[in-house]
Design a binder for these strands. Structure first.
Length: 749
DNA sequence: CGCCCCGTGATTTTT
DNA sequence: TCACGGGGCG
């Protein structure tokens, strides 16, 4: 770890405590290090075998890091720890008892893309217009239900999300719950479960099988949970079941950093903890070992505006440090260019790039920074963007592996049956699907039956069924594919994972397909296939590899590399950097307009997000907002985030950048209060043209006369008229906005 | 069956 | 602006 002092007495004192324990503390107080120390301590004292300890982290990355740190303290012993995310742990348990949930031990874990495909099929079957109500919408509701611990039969009557589905024109008889039921049936048919099922099913097994539950209750002597504020109901339920008798649970968390309310996380879990574990000791850590006084002061004042908090006050012995910078820029292009420039300059002052992060509110903001950093040849890495295993070519190969490993995986079949082109198109595919449904079999089986092939690969004579549906050419192509498939299955069983992958890439013609490509993509696609082969080295079986892919979804992190980190505020949780850039602090973006629909709770969660962002910084935090931001194809006027005004003047320094020149303002507060201020000319001294304070703050945007508006976010708008003054227009909510604007524009003319 | 052209909608946040 | 899906044609 880089040079941060930690009070070892404190960590070790907590490490030796037994019994239910709640460590409640603020950002940068070393919560994770307390857990790590505790793990090492238990192992050192031989109070439990590694396999008797369960430690749950929020991300896989955190789990890997914790494992390394514990290894450094106690060596090999750390290897058998049950250390991972809730989902990773649940998957491990579920594989052992899959039969209890009518799954085979090889069941597939669906990724979001697969989920979407299954849902599309369901909607089509139910006659739901997927344009009107999108698959993702239903998946979102189902996920929330799973987070709350509801299987289809357990969704309470009158649950707020269980409405009738909107139907175009006609009245609807289909409820959201009906969609959920059908979706689960489909998953069972293809021997698959989605992410949310992992925990739900394990809890289900625990509830219905006393012996299984007891075996795990006896097994785990120590259970630890990091980021406890972000556990949802099903996760908490899982913990409660496991600790029914042996209440040796230790949770660490911070209510001020709860940023996953939308995913069902409940701060009330922290309150329940003291109720469910009456003997629990609560420990508070308030000394911050991360940030300077200015950064901590800014963050603390900001979070103090929240009403619903347990309350704590952080302090630090660190220096005052630099004030938080609040920077005003012309537009988002200027913003990304300026951030890159500052990073460049600081890099020349020997500041390491691995200590710089750009934290954004939405992932769409990352693109601009990628461009500006590339322009200056500054290396960067986008976390949580398009991840390695989500790339098209990688997903294709994984589909091959999935299908060979698990013939019932119809989604994998669908993806690769005609990739590369084998002359098996939509018509043949639909015929196969119909047949599979009628026979209640997998697509592979249905294909075999169609061409008259037995499981062992023998061809039966007189295989002429369905000849009117599938033409001889397609039939031949299918037969050829099935013969290859048989060979692949044999080779997968006998070869090492790497050998097999290399063989498969050639034999399937998949690699040749990309080699024949002409576009600019070709090289990077082939390079990614090489990367996949490299990754495959670390695995002893294909099954192990597939679980890794489904659950970890990322390549090995190389934190040693000198590169700037770009990520969303959400994924920055638990991390820290010397320098943190926080762009896009504008109303509508941060706090995000959608979050504000959830009223005060929504706003407070956004504020916690801002708090998380600021407290990632050790030495310097740079917040910025822009006056104009490009959304799709148009530039829109923006107003500074209310959070900017919540940072006290004594902790910040305000700058306005115009054409690359820096202006420091004496009374920046007033400048920001006048949200719709514009600057005359380009390059001169800033001067106030006109403002409309009423509409400037809060939920307004301004648009130029004649602007086309086509987004639901523009519930309230401001039209700028020719002399530079503003006119506020309330559009009263949502759609039909364009029409209204057209009407107003006419009036003004 | 497979390719190409056009029209439309998209952006919260994630294990 | 861009990515994806549907429709039409060779």
């Amino acid at each position: 770890m880089t040079g941060q002092t930690y009070n070892p007495n404190q960590a070790e004192a907590i490490a030796t405590l037994d019994g239910p324990l709640l460590v409640l503390s603020g950002a940068g107080t070393g919560k994770t290090r307390v857990l790590t120390a505790r793990l090492a301590e238990i192992l050192r004292q031989h109070r439990a075998y590694p396999s008797q300890i369960l430690a749950v982290t929020f991300t896989n990355k955190a789990a890997t890091e914790m494992r390394h740190r514990v290894e450094a303290m106690v060596g090999e012993d750390a290897r058998d720890l049950w250390l991972g995310t809730f989902h990773g742990i649940a998957a491990k348990i579920l594989r052992r008892h899959a039969a209890l949930m009518q799954l085979t031990a090889n069941f597939t874990i669906l990724d979001p893309d697969d989920q979407n495909r299954v849902m599309k099929q369901c909607l089509r079957e139910l006659g739901i217009d997927e344009k009107l109500t999108k698959p993702r919408y239903f998946l979102g509701i189902i996920d929330r239900w799973k987070d709350s611990g509801y299987s289809p039969d357990q969704v309470p009557v009158g649950e707020k999300n269980n409405r009738l589905v909107e139907m175009a024109g006609k009245s609807s008889t289909v409820s959201h719950l009906d969609v959920y039921r059908l979706y689960q049936n489909r998953l069972r048919q293809i021997d698959a479960c989605d992410f949310g099922d992992l925990l739900l099913m394990v809890v289900e097994i625990f509830k219905n099988n006393r012996t299984v539950l007891e075996s795990y209750q006896n097994k785990f002597r120590y259970i630890m949970v990091d980021e406890f504020q972000d556990t949802n109901r099903i996760q908490y339920y899982f913990l409660r079941l496991l600790t029914e008798y042996n209440k040796n649970l230790c949770c660490v968390g911070d209510d001020d950093q709860s940023i996953y309310g939308w995913r069902g996380a409940e701060i009330t879990n922290i309150l329940n903890f003291e109720k469910d574990f009456p003997k629990a000791k609560t420990i508070r850590l308030e000394q911050n070992y991360r940030s300077t006084k200015h950064i901590l002061g800014a963050a603390s004042s900001l979070i103090a505006k929240n009403g619903r908090r347990l309350g704590k006050s952080l302090w630090t012995e660190f220096d005052t440090g630099e004030k938080v910078k609040i920077v005003t820029l012309e537009d988002n292009r200027a913003e990304s260019a300026w951030v890159a420039e500052v990073i460049d300059t600081r890099q020349n002052e020997q500041k390491p790039l691995s200590e710089v992060a750009i934290l954004v509110r939405t992932s769409s903001q990352t693109r601009g920074f990628e461009e500006s950093l590339s322009y200056r040849a500054i290396p960067y890495r986008v976390y949580g963007g398009l991840r390695f295993y989500e790339r098209q070519e990688i997903r294709d190969v994984i589909a091959y592996l999935r299908l060979i490993h698990h013939p019932a995986d119809d989604l994998a079949f669908e993806r690769i049956i005609n990739l590369p082109k084998r002359g098996i198109g939509d018509t043949t595919f639909e015929a196969l699907r119909a047949r599979a449904r009628a026979e209640e079999s997998s697509m592979i089986e249905a294909s075999r039956n169609l061409v008259g092939m037995t499981q062992s690969g023998a061809i039966l004579s007189g295989d002429n069924h369905d000849s009117k549906d599938v033409k001889p050419a397609a039939r031949r192509a299918l037969l050829k594919f099935l013969q290859s498939y048989g060979l692949w299955q044999e080779r997968m069983a006998s070869d090492s994972p790497l050998e097999f992958l290399t063989f498969l890439l050639h034999d399937s013609g998949y690699q040749a397909m990309w080699e024949a490509e002409l576009g600019i993509e070709k090289e990077s696609r082939l390079e990614n296939l090489r990367e996949l082969e490299r990754a495959m080295r670390d695995f002893t079986s294909i099954a192990e590899f597939l679980d890794h892919v489904a659950l970890v979804m990322d390549t090995i992190n190389d934190s040693s590399r000198q590169q700037v980190s770009i990520m969303t505020l959400h994924s920055s949780k638990g991390l820290e950097f010397d320098t943190v850039f926080l762009p896009g602090w504008e109303e509508q973006l941060f706090p995000h307009s959608n979050a504000l629909h959830d009223g005060q709770d929504g706003l407070e969660e956004e504020r916690r997000l801002a708090y998380v962002g600021l407290t990632r910084a050790r030495k310097l935090a740079v917040v910025s907002w822009v006056k104009r931001r490009q959304v799709y194809d148009q530039f829109l006027d923006r107003f500074p985030s209310r959070f900017l005004r919540e940072i006290p003047a004594e902790h910040c320094l305000m700058e306005t950048i115009i054409d690359g020149e820096v202006f420091v303002t004496d009374s920046p507060r007033s400048e920001m209060n006048l949200g719709s201020q514009t600057v005359a000319g380009s390059g001169g001294t800033p001067s106030l043209v006109q403002s409309n304070k009423q509409s400037a703050i809060g939920s307004s945007l301004s648009m130029a006369v004649g602007d086309r508006v086509s987004h639901k976010m523009f519930g309230v708008g401001v039209i700028r008229v020719k002399d530079g003054s503003h006119l506020t227009v309330d559009f009263g909510g949502d759609f039909g906005v364009k029409k209204l604007i057209d009407a107003y524009v006419k009036k003004i003319d």
